[in-house]
Design a binder for these strands. Structure first.
Lengths: 350, 350
DNA sequence: CTGAAAGCGCTTACAG
DNA sequence: CTGAAAGCGCTTACAG
């Protein structure tokens, strides 16, 4: 046998037509049990696999999804936010569970989006992750909906969006974690992140921060806000340094992402400030490393596992033309030592 | 226009045959400049994209590669070794740069490998990452080569392997980092990892460890070896605890992976042992978090960026039927504070 | 339950 | 430089 076996080869050996082979392989009820068995046996023997290109071409869909992961052009190659990597993992799993393959594509924020997987029939739909500045991305997103592209994005649910997104309740998450800080007696809480519609998720976390403060009778202090857009340790490090240098006094720090929080903790250590004794630190995301930080980082967990599934299921609905809507998932505080609420472990006693 | 435009639609509007459209789009020199321009303009206007399923079917290749990433069934979903994630990033980049798409598939170590991307023509070749116990994987790898599957694996170069692999020089990396520890005056160096052919990479790191000790006139002590196969913090944590409990005395620890090293550092802290004062700790991989550990982790860097490119280029050669061979890349020590060689920063003085 | 036939949308010898 | 035609390997109405 030269090259891969085709359905014709099997048909020939089984003494049936090629159409019957195709039916048997696809589990059609129109084939007798006996014929099916024979075909399956021969297929196995010949190590036959249906050619997806032919099958997809004929059926007009590819049973694969594409994930567009955007990356900051300033970051070095391998530094992708671990949170997105967790999402990637859960999306891959969710796809596999539903019988879909996953194509992954890293996009440069600066360039045109390479979003033609659907047009080329390589994928039936798109999942967008981390597309940067929302206000900049917006026109591209609108273009996608105008073109009838099937896609979902991970992110905040914004008022007048025309696309469909899945995100977590950042306002509630931010409020909950800041309430916790307040409950520990902290009063001067710095915020490292962003507070404008350019980055709606960070903005929402900031809103939650403000809500919690006001509910406690405190007014947010502009001097405690440090703008930090990129989710990297370096950015968090620098932001914390800046806050220290401002000499405005603070006893806690809420960073909009864990990576920033970890950078901030390092900065505080370098400046001789003890965490959590002098400054309580909390982050957002609950990346795997958070519990291994020193001290372990208190943060707000986003359920990436469920997020991946909701993302995929929503996209599948869109592809099938079923009604689909944006969804907001809960964000849960995870209390560890960096906020000062958990008694120090044995290592402190040394 | 109903549905997507096809090359026939363009041909009709351009007043040429469909074959000419196809040629123009693919940049064939057989088309006049003028015709090409006209075709391209119309294609753009109609937002035409060639159907990859049709194109791939006809050309008999898919211009996509598949990455099989294996995961430990015991680990929870999102806990993939950050080192592999870095590799994933670099492989994705390398593919994109060469015009290939990347299909990603997580495989359960326990199950049959879902390795039929090539048979189904969804991918032209495979990259294998983290397939667990080499001795167990071996028969499957052999099966793949027998089947004529195009693939490369990331891992140690083993003597009698029939497949092609790309890996780093683990012996040299292990030797270099242990030499460094010895140069700091450490004499009782524990090894957390594995020392058998089941995990050739860990075995090689152990070999390097032994070489360095012997070169310094020291004999490796079995009592200082803790078996740890999974690259997780928990495993590293437990291994370090076990070593402490053995009460054999040690002033340094070489963990076969950064994740294990970070778990070990936490265990030492919990047991009241100061790093690096009482125990120097070094890891392997240089994952992004290593520099943000507390203290920052000394480790051995594998160049994931280059690894991804070599992996992809090697696979492409195999696909094209060109001669290809396994390659071994250098592993470079990265000295930070956990080994005691770098003077403590300002945070220690507080 | 099965087969003959059309057709998915391209690419590429072949002929001019 | 261009066109007519075959064919990649399937799936699925249509007819029996």
């Amino acid at each position: 046998m030269k090259g891969r076996a085709t359905s014709f080869d099997i048909a020939y050996r089984a003494g049936v037509s090629q159409a019957t082979v195709s039916r048997a392989l696809r589990g059609s009820p129109l084939v007798s049990e006996e014929t099916r068995k024979r075909v399956l046996a021969i297929a196995k023997e010949l190590n036959y696999k249906v050619d997806k290109n032919a099958s997809n071409l004929r059926r007009q869909h590819s049973v694969t999804l594409a994930l567009l992961l955007f990356e900051d052009p300033t970051s070095d190659d391998s530094m992708i936010n671990p949170f997105f990597l967790s999402m990637l993992g859960s999306i891959t799993h969710a796809c596999a569970k539903r019988g879909y393959d996953l194509l992954i594509s890293f996009q440069q924020l600066s360039q045109d989006w390479h979003a033609d997987y659907q047009d080329t029939h390589k994928a039936d739909g798109l999942i967008l992750l981390g597309y940067g500045d929302y206000l900049t991305a917006r026109s591209r997103l609108e273009h996608l909906v105008d073109q009838g592209t099937h896609f979902v994005r991970w992110g905040a649910v914004v008022d007048d969006q025309r696309d469909i997104s899945v995100g977590c309740d950042n306002v509630q998450g931010g409020r909950a974690i800041v309430e916790h800080l307040l409950a520990q007696g902290r009063r001067r809480i710095g915020y490292i992140g962003h507070a404008s519609a350019h980055f709606p998720e960070f903005f929402d976390r900031y809103r939650g921060y403000c809500e919690a403060l006001r509910a406690a009778g405190l007014e947010p202090d502009e001097a405690l806000l440090v703008d930090a857009v990129d989710s990297t340790e370096v950015v968090g490090y620098n932001a914390a340094c800046e806050l220290v240098d401002r000499q405005v006094g603070f006893d806690a720090l809420f960073a909009a992402s864990d990576l920033q929080a970890m950078g901030a903790m390092r900065a505080l250590a370098d400046r001789g400030l003890a965490v959590p004794e002098q400054v309580a630190v909390v982050g957002f995301d609950d990346i795997p490393m958070a519990r291994f930080a020193n001290p372990p980082l208190t943060t707000v967990a986003q359920d990436t596992k469920r997020a991946g599934e909701v993302l995929v299921d929503t996209l599948l609905k869109i592809i099938k033309g079923e009604p689909a809507q944006s969804t907001l998932m809960p964000a849960l505080p995870v209390i560890r030592r960096s906020c000062g609420a958990v008694p120090p472990g044995p290592e402190q006693s040394a």
